[in-house]
Design a protein around this nucleic acid. Sequence first.
DNA 1: TCATTATATCTGCATATCTAGAATTGTCAA
DNA 2: TTGACAATTCTAGATATGCAGATATAATGA
Lengths: 103, 103
Amino acid sequence: MIHMNILEAMKALSNQTRLSILQNLREPEKHFPPQDEGDVTIDGVCVGSIQEGIGMSQSTTSTYLASLQRAGLVTSKRMGGWTYYKRNEANIQKLIELLSKEL
Amino acid sequence: MIHMNILEAMKALSNQTRLSILQNLREPEKHFPPQDEGDVTIDGVCVGSIQEGIGMSQSTTSTYLASLQRAGLVTSKRMGGWTYYKRNEANIQKLIELLSKEL
DNA sequence: TCATTATATCTGCATATCTAGAATTGTCAA
DNA sequence: TTGACAATTCTAGATATGCAGATATAATGA
């Protein structure tokens, strides 16, 4: 597991849209349509579905997901032509613990 | 207690200097000199001492403290000519709980 | 190979944040 | 009331972030 960095995580979460993406991915079946391949909870949600969910441009959506990934909050998996993003629960838990101890 | 807002808190903490201020206030006697009046842990630390601790201008320090206060992370108390800032532990705890449930 | 679709990256403009210095306000003591 | 500090607010220029459109890259299937 990557060593979580509080500041980087706070920066990634200091934007309403990025915060919502992470929160919506908590219950993906509730916020995103079924994916053509794979399970929305196990494999993740593709960029296009997330884009529809947040109502922003494709480039912005992709940039935001990359930002969340750099902060260690989500992981991505390429399957065919699609990239599926899901929460990195272990790191999110680690972040909460870090904040409990060091904030 | 004010209802904590995750986004506002994340914005306040998305800056290294503001994050450090909050962290240094965890053990104020370790990071700041004794105050002329009052106890550093009970009453808080004055703006001038915090300014020295972070090495930024007086105006920037004051602005950052105001930002942390708006986010509910610190409280201030005026005593004579000085304003003493300390952590709002109840709200910080509330924030951690909010993040555990909603992040 | 070529066309098509999904995603990522590049470019640029609008807006926000960072930060200091100057000016202002508040408090105390002479 | 005036002078001396402490703190806040105002102003402004430098830097970063917010976003979209254009372009590039990847994968698929005809």
